Lab assay of single mutants.
Amino acid sequence: NKFNKELGWATWEIFNLPNLNGVQVKAFIDSLRDDPSQSANLLAEAKKLNDAQA
């Protein structure tokens, strides 16, 4: 379904953000699993944090 596809894509993108540490990645992935409907918002937050830590 739509959420599974978005969840998978967001998970892959978060895993590939180079400036996040393992704890941050795990926290974002756990949040995605808790509420897949928020995948776009969580991915945006992860990208912002990644950019801030560059």
Rank of each mutant, 00 (worst) to 15 (best):
K5S: 14
Q53E: 04
N50A: 03
N19W: 14
N1I: 09
Q38R: 12
N1D: 13
A52C: 10
N41C: 11
A54I: 06
N50W: 02
L7S: 06
I29S: 02
T11K: 10
L49D: 01
P36S: 03
D51S: 09
N16I: 09
N16S: 09
A40E: 09
K47S: 03
L7V: 10
A46M: 06
S31C: 13
D30R: 14
N19R: 02
N1L: 09
W12L: 07
D35W: 06
T11D: 04
E6Q: 06
K26F: 05
L42H: 03
V25Y: 04
D35M: 04
K48S: 08
Q53K: 04
D35L: 06
A27V: 07
S39W: 15
W9E: 09
T11L: 15
L7M: 09
D35C: 09
A44C: 12
P36I: 06
S37V: 04
A27Q: 11
N21R: 07
G8P: 06
V23R: 11
L42V: 14
L20W: 01
Q24V: 02
F15K: 07
S39T: 13
E45P: 00
L20M: 01
L49A: 04
N1G: 12
Q38K: 09
N4Q: 11
L17V: 00
S31E: 08
L42E: 00
G22Q: 13
L20S: 00
F15G: 03
N21K: 07
A10V: 15
Q24A: 02
E6S: 10
L42C: 05
N21Y: 08
F28H: 00
A40N: 07
F15D: 02
E45F: 10
N41G: 07
I14A: 02
D35R: 06
K2M: 12
I14D: 02
A27G: 07
S39V: 15
L43N: 02
P36C: 05
K26G: 04
V25I: 14
N16Q: 10
G8C: 15
A52H: 08
P18L: 10
L42S: 02
L7Y: 11
K47Y: 13
E45V: 07
L43W: 05
L20A: 00
N4T: 10
P36E: 02
E6N: 10
E45G: 03
V25N: 00
K5V: 10
D35G: 02
W9F: 08
Q38L: 07
V23T: 10
V23C: 14
L43A: 03
K2R: 12
V23N: 12
G8M: 15
L17K: 00
K48W: 07
G8V: 15
I29A: 03
W9H: 08
A52M: 13
D34M: 14
E13I: 15
K47D: 01
I29Y: 05
V25T: 04
Q38S: 10
A46S: 02
T11N: 05
Q24I: 03
V25W: 03
S37D: 06
N50P: 00
K48C: 09
N50M: 01
A27L: 11
N16Y: 05
F15N: 06
S39F: 12
V25D: 00
K2Y: 12
I14C: 05
D51V: 08
I29L: 13
P36R: 03
S31K: 15
K26M: 13
Q24L: 03
F28K: 00
S31V: 06
A44P: 01
E45L: 11
D34R: 14
R33A: 08
Q38C: 10
F28Y: 05
E45Y: 11
L32K: 00
F28S: 00
Q24P: 00
S31A: 14
N19G: 03
N16M: 10
E6M: 10
Q24F: 02
D35F: 08
K26L: 11
K47W: 06
V23L: 12
A10F: 15
L42W: 03
L43G: 01
K5Q: 14
A52V: 10
N19C: 12
G22K: 13
N4A: 09
V23W: 15
T11A: 15
G22E: 13
Q53S: 04
G22Y: 14
A27F: 15
R33T: 09
K5Y: 11
A40K: 12
N21H: 07
A52R: 14
L49Y: 03
W12E: 04
F3L: 12
L7K: 03
E45S: 09
I29C: 08
K5M: 09
N41R: 14
E45R: 11
L49Q: 04
Q38D: 07
K5L: 07
L43K: 01
P18F: 09
P36G: 02
A27R: 12
K47M: 09
L43M: 04
P18Q: 06
Q53A: 04
A52Y: 09
P36T: 03
D30T: 13
L43D: 01
K48I: 07
F3M: 09
V25Q: 06
D30C: 14
K2L: 11
I14S: 02
D34V: 10
I29E: 02
K5T: 14
L43Y: 06
K26D: 03
N16H: 11
R33E: 06
W9R: 11
Q24N: 01
A54M: 08
L43E: 01
A44L: 10
G22W: 15
K5D: 15
R33Q: 10
A27H: 13
N19P: 00
K26V: 05
D51Q: 09
G22M: 14
Q53C: 11
K47Q: 09
K2Q: 13
K48H: 06
L20H: 00
N16G: 05
T11H: 06
L43P: 00
F28N: 00
N19I: 01
D35A: 05
N41P: 09
R33V: 09
W12D: 04
P18M: 07
Q38M: 08
A40G: 06
D35Q: 08
A44V: 09
Q24C: 03
L17W: 02
F3G: 09
L20R: 00
A27N: 10
Q53V: 06
D51Y: 08
Q38N: 14
N41D: 07
S31L: 13
L17N: 00
E13V: 15
L49F: 02
L43F: 05
K47G: 02
F3V: 10
L42I: 15
A40P: 05
A54D: 06
L42N: 01
W9T: 07
L49G: 01
D51K: 10
N21P: 01
W9P: 06
L32N: 00
D30E: 11
S39M: 14
N16L: 08
N16E: 03
E6Y: 10
N41H: 12
A40H: 11
F28R: 00
V25L: 08
I14R: 01
K48D: 04
A27C: 12
G22P: 14
P18T: 11
Q38W: 03
F15Q: 11
W12C: 10
K48R: 13
G22N: 15
D30F: 06
R33D: 03
A40I: 10
S37T: 09
F3S: 09
R33G: 04
N41I: 12
L32Q: 01
L17C: 04
L20C: 02
K2T: 10
N19T: 02
L17M: 10
P18G: 06
E13F: 15
L32F: 04
S39A: 14
L20V: 01
N21E: 05
F3H: 11
N41A: 13
N41V: 13
V23Y: 15
D34G: 10
L42T: 06
L17A: 01
K26N: 05
L42Y: 05
A27D: 05
K26C: 14
I29T: 03
L32T: 01
F15C: 14
K26W: 12
D51M: 13
K2F: 12
S37N: 11
K5C: 15
K47I: 12
D34Y: 10
